[in-house]
């Protein structure tokens, strides 16, 4: 579903899709998103071995089951074949720490489907990104489990701190090469910026997601952290901010979720700027080390407001001849 109407010819301005949600269109988008996850899944299995494989499988299966059960309970048609449950499960697994006990992963997946999607009315009606919502819930519920990390490539041996935590509390900065390829500790999907980029390129090339959101997030983070870095070089550099933590992953896969982000192009950019600003502020001044989750959830809440401001009220308003 692409924006093919040229406003110059018709004189109408048209926002980008999706405008209406239908299951057949969603299926293709969802399946494409699942494919875009593959490089990231590959990296997570490479770095975290069995932990990754088990967590991802558990989350996906739990999500599928829960969605089917919910839809049966609500006496609606069961639509797990639209792959959206798979995407939610995958998306959630990839932002969890590798050593998370399965009970927590299962509870999180159930929460993502029940509270993140079904309670609001199912696919297309949720306000918040379901996987981020579930992670926020797990973070509040099991704070110690969600802040325990392991080193990549030897996940059963050593527990360690994430690059962002090291930078914040001990002023040690990981090598940029490690941050880019993923040889750092963190949640399953966030470590390898390289693989996230691969998935992102596929997503945006196939137009399953809008590049404007990640584009504006990353630019805002770069500029904002760049300004802070110039003022105080002891701060992490903008490149460090871009590559470390869940920023890449969140920007590409989670912020760009069309259901929970604004519809218009202008709205998307405002959305991205908001996320970038909140994110860097939390990372630098907040008590937490990572701000991606709350930044995106916060802007999800503001999305209806942004939509109201940026969408023209009358349908089919003619553009002024310029």
């Amino acid at each position: 579903m692409t924006d093919t109407t040229d406003s110059k010819h018709t004189g109408f301005s048209l926002g980008s899709s999706p405008h209406i949600f239908s299951h057949t269109d969603m299926k293709e988008t969802m399946r494409g998103t699942a494919i875009a996850f593959l490089p990231v899944i590959g990296a997570s299995i490479y770095f975290f071995r069995l932990h990754a494989a088990v967590l991802i499988t558990t989350c996906i299966i739990t999500c599928i089951f829960t969605e089917a059960l919910c839809q049966l309970a609500r006496r609606r048609p069961v639509t797990v074949d639209d792959w959206s449950a798979v995407v939610t499960g995958c998306s959630l697994a990839l932002i969890l720490p590798p050593t998370l006990p399965l009970s927590a992963a299962i509870i999180g997946s159930v929460f993502a489907i029940v509270v993140g999607k079904q309670i609001f009315g199912g696919l297309g009606h949720n306000i918040f990104n379901p996987s981020l919502l579930a992670r926020a819930f797990l973070m509040a519920n099991y704070p110690r489990w969600l802040t325990t990390w392991v080193e990549p490539l030897k996940p059963d041996a050593v527990s360690s701190a994430t690059p962002l935590a090291l930078a914040k509390f001990q002023h040690e900065f990981a090598a940029l090469k490690d941050l880019f390829f993923g040889n750092v500790s963190g949640s399953l999907g966030e470590t390898s910026a390289f693989c996230v980029l691969l998935g992102g390129i596929y997503l945006f090339y196939k137009k399953y997601g809008d590049w404007r959101i990640p584009g504006s997030i990353l630019s805002t983070v770069f500029v904002y952290s760049g300004i802070l870095w110039v003022i105080n070089p002891a701060c992490p550099s903008p490149i460090f901010h871009l590559l470390a933590g869940g920023l890449m992953y969140g920007a590409v896969f989670q912020a760009s979720d069309p259901v929970t982000s604004p519809v218009s192009a202008k709205g998307k950019i405002i959305f991205g700027i908001g996320i970038g600003l909140i994110l860097v502020t939390i990372r630098i001044w907040g008590g937490l080390t990572e701000g991606v989750m709350y930044a995106i959830l916060f802007m999800n809440a503001l999305t209806p407001l942004i939509d109201r401001i940026t969408i023209p009220r009358r349908f089919g308003a003619r553009q002024s001849p310029t």
Binding site: P101, S103, A104, V115, F137, A140, N141, Y142, P143, W145
Partner: peptide, 15 residues
């Protein structure tokens, strides 16, 4: 059973 910390907090109350 691992305690659900969220239940002590306001978030758990709302839920």
């Amino acid at each position: 059973f691992e305690n659900w910390v969220v239940m002590i907090m306001p978030a758990g109350a709302f839920l």
